[in-house]
Amino acid sequence: MTDLNLDLGPILQQVAKSDKAAFKRLYDLTSAKLLGVILRIIKDRVAAEDVLQDVYLRIWRNAARYAPEAGSANGWVVTIARNRAIDLVRRKSEQTMPENEDGEDWFAKLAEGRDREGEIMDASSLRYCLGQMEAEKRACVLDAYYEGLSREELAARYRQPVNTIKTWLHRAIAALRACMETNG
């Protein structure tokens, strides 16, 4: 099943007109990818599927709000999924032990990423600019992004005070954004 290799913009525009067939198609194209995104953050399968349902209802409800000027439809869709997963994970007072996936593995995957997806979501400047970051800071950013780790969990994993983690994240993203402005 193709995932985000296809520009979802036209399909989303149909969904915005309450086209149920388009909505089903969107689901078929994206649900496995989105569940993957959510599961890496939520980890519990049942809760993750609850979130996935919620995400698709939001997509159904809000498709008309997507504006192409704001960015790619593919980005819009994954952002909803990720945000809802983070909403839920921040509510859990006890996290399960985070997986040991190294932030650097994610970067390697991104670096070898498929070109078509890269074009659709402008991944090339992201790849380049992430590459400019110090490895540890990059790994920290990517752990936050992929696993939805809290500051405290990042602090434990990187053996730094929470305030240091905050500074790492602020500076790394500020530098990333500046880099992408000039390399976009």
Binding site: L4, G75, A123, R127
Partner: peptide
């Protein structure tokens, strides 16, 4: 949007 490609 800038970070969205990571999810892919």
């Amino acid at each position: 949007q800038k970070l969205a490609p990571l999810a892919a």
